[in-house]
Design a protein around this nucleic acid. Structure first.
Ligand SMILES: [Mn+2]
Ligand SMILES: [Mn+2]
Ligand SMILES: [Zn+2]
Ligand SMILES: [Zn+2]
Lengths: 150, 150
DNA sequence: GGTATACTGAAAATCTTTCGCATCTTGCCC
DNA sequence: GGGCAAGATGCGAAAGATTTTCAGTATACC
């Protein structure tokens, strides 16, 4: 047998999952791949599930929810609660950011504004609150959707 | 029969409901009363339902949801989506505001910061979005809860 | 009062997410 | 490489929140 173990590249996903303290299983690797490769940065569990189906992966919806929750706990993904029933997940970029969401087409623009972040911190401090987290979502109509309709 | 129609005061609730284009019915009046009289400014449908029960009102939970949704459509109440399952409703004060929520005890502090509001408007404008709404919720631990635990 | 229409309560249906559990896998030791 | 225990998966059932359905009832208006 010629060649070393290096002939087979160990996918980055496996490292991430292992480092998160989770066993490397097919569902976990596939779900992470979907999140990394999909054009949508923000996907609902259902979105992920459908993407898996379209890749002919036999993974149950319950497993998708379970794995996404584990990934969240491990800091691999962030869960968002925008309006409209389902939670959406995105890979954790490591940097906090907020969202601008188009109410017509669902387009999402991410932003980070230090002025807002500072004001929030000040307001919380004035009330004596110790901030744990925050959620800022601005809903509006994106340029494309404004063109399409009056 | 002495006395005019003015002897019987028409409750303000009835006016508000009528002006909203809705028929004045017992459930609607009671629910509006609960929202006005309850110490909690922010109530879930379940909260309202329980308050009704404690007032010996026979109103179904489905009706509570229906009425709250109608009130929202009529601009009488605002629906909020804080973390944790249920939506909460509050009377529409006519003035927008955001929320600081204690993750331990649920205490809510309302605030309005023009600096933040302006920054949001600018950010949306830069992206060409026409703002329709926004939701800013800061989660943290209130002073009381900080004292109670390490 | 009489009537068309809107409203109501209760149950059933939806929708999203989580559980229970029998059945597989993975990670690890020999 | 095989054996094993802990941990994961898939499936169906269950749960929790909200909405819909529908037959009976109340309201607004004449
Ligand atoms: Mn994002
Ligand atoms: Mn409020
Ligand atoms: Zn759009
Ligand atoms: Zn508190």
């Amino acid at each position: 047998m010629v060649g070393s173990a290096r002939d087979v590249e160990i996918p980055l996903e496996n490292q991430q999952i292992k480092q998160a303290g989770l066993k490397v299983t097919a569902p976990r690797v596939k779900i992470l791949e979907i999140l990394e490769q999909s054009g949508k940065r923000h996907m609902s569990a259902e979105d992920v599930y459908k993407a898996l189906l379209s890749h002919d992966e036999e993974i149950g919806l319950a497993t998708v929810y379970r794995v996404l929750t584990q990934f969240e706990g491990a800091g691999l993904v962030c869960r968002r609660h925008f309006e409209g029933g389902q939670s959406v997940f995105e890979l954790n970029s490591g940097e906090h950011h907020d969202h601008l969401v188009c109410v017509k087409c669902g387009k999402i623009v991410e932003f980070l504004d230090t002025t807002i972040e500072k004001r929030q911190a000040r307001i919380a401090a004035e009330e004596g609150f110790k901030i744990e987290d925050h959620s800022l979502v601005v809903y509006g109509v994106c340029p494309d959707c404004q063109k399409k309709r009056g």
